[in-house]
Amino acid sequence: MATETTAGTASTSTCVVDGSAVGMPQLCFDWWPNQIFWLIVTLVVIFFFLSRIALPRIAAVLAERQGTITNDLAAAEDLKAKAVEAEEAYNKALADARAQAQDIVNQTKAEIKAELDDATAKADAEIAAKAAEGEEKIAEIRANAMESVKDVAKDTAKELVSVMGGKADARSITAAINARMKG
């Protein structure tokens, strides 16, 4: 089919007749040297650009980034350690303060208790004194009252005896009354 018999001399190659391809253009060996030449040029140029400029540069950038990341991580670690330290210090201070506050509270409580005890004791003593005084007075009053009762009883008894016709001596009446009062 794809014959070279067609007179393609007017065109660029025997592979092209009237502007369209005869057979596969890929197999037109007239064009191979040209393509191979330009391909080699292209590859050499790309290789030059990549190996001399682009790849070392990208490698450097990547290495730098790795370094930066490592540094930043280390710094972050540092900061974290510092933060932990600060928190510990804070906690310690807090605990100290709490303990101190507890101490003060205990102390104050003890003081107040001592004062209270003191006051209570004083008040108790006072109360006891007053009670004793009261009792004394009561006893006195009772004694007085007893005396009065005795006197009244003596008088009454003397009167009664004299009315009944007897003669009562004061001593026996007193003794009788005392015995009665005791009984």
Binding site: V16, S20, A21, G23, P25, Q26, C28, Q35
Partner: peptide, 11 residues
């Protein structure tokens, strides 16, 4: 159809 014409090498 000229499916292969796109592969023609020309100056």
């Amino acid at each position: 159809f000229h499916p292969m014409d796109q592969f023609i090498v020309k100056p």
